[in-house]
């Protein structure tokens, strides 16, 4: 479980996040949704500690991450896996070395053990026979998979994904979503996914936080998202043609 309390962040004069409170549950895929530029990525970076919030605290299973000392911080970081919006794979390394990298720096495993583990994760995300390829030689969807494999290789307790299916075709998107959801349940970990894709929301959203201009306006399960009575959320949800037809059909 991850809990955030009163997170605020401004860049210069621009207020990006305002007093965000939320709880992300273990064994569920938690989503942060909202339009482009509402501060989703910034919130995620505040949670993992890449950006220091001006105010507020982040708790990882009751451990205060914001005020933790160096040892506790690196201990918590060892339990984090993250998939970045653009993949953030190391382009100087091949696929296999990318996936093995967290094990190189975080564990004392032998080379064979690391290779075994990396191969297991690559297989888990449906990638085989690409071990020796460089990052520039694989497709966007494969990059996302490699990113997920790297994020889960060290058995994380917390998994963060920033727009895992941006730039992918609808079919591959669904596969990646399902993969994340399956891994979450399989490993019983706390997963937070940032997205603005309604397909993902309806597909895997077990707990959803809706951000609007840096504020949290709604939270709940995807079953309740169509009757939230929050006009801003309705605008977001029914911007999708299929969704709006569904509503009109119902009414």
């Amino acid at each position: 479980m991850i809990k955030i309390k009163d997170i605020s962040k401004t860049f210069g004069k621009k207020i990006v996040l305002q007093n965000i409170n939320a709880e992300f549950e273990k064994g569920k895929t938690n989503l942060i949704i909202g339009a482009s530029g509402t501060g989703k990525s910034v919130l995620l970076k505040c949670i993992v500690g890449l950006i220091k919030p001006d105010d507020g605290w982040v708790y990882y299973d009751l451990r205060n991450f914001t005020e933790a000392d160096k040892e506790t911080k690196s201990e918590i970081r060892r339990e984090i896996g993250m998939l970045f919006q653009g993949g953030a794979l190391f382009d100087s390394k091949n696929v296999e070395d990318n996936v093995m990298f967290p094990l190189d720096v975080l564990t004392k495993m032998s080379y064979d053990e690391k290779l075994d583990r990396a191969n297991h994760c690559l297989k888990r995300v449906g990638l085989e026979n690409v071990n020796k390829k460089y990052i520039s030689e694989i497709s966007g969807g494969m990059k996302k998979r490699v990113g997920i494999a790297r994020a889960i290789v060290n058995n994380p307790n917390y998994l963060f994904c920033d727009e895992p299916n941006s730039g992918l075709d609808p079919q591959t998107s669904v596969l990646i979503d399902e993969l994340i959801s399956e891994i979450t349940h399989e490993l019983d970990i706390t997963t937070i996914v940032v997205t603005h894709d309604m397909n993902s929301v309806m597909g895997i959203g077990e707990k959803i936080i809706f951000l609007y201009k840096g504020m949290k306006l709604w939270e709940g399960h995807h079953k309740d998202i169509t009757h939230s009575n929050v006009p801003e959320l309705d605008d977001f949800v029914f911007a999708n043609k299929v969704m709006s037809k569904m509503r009109d059909g119902k009414v």
């Binding site: 500690g49 890449l50 060892r78 993250m82 970045f84 953030a88 382009d91 975080l106």
Partner: peptide, 20 residues
Amino acid sequence: GGLGTMRITEQIDALEVMGI
């Protein structure tokens, strides 16, 4: 150029998240 590219493609952030 190499470090700049690593920065803008979040590779440096990825290292930081791993606690490096």
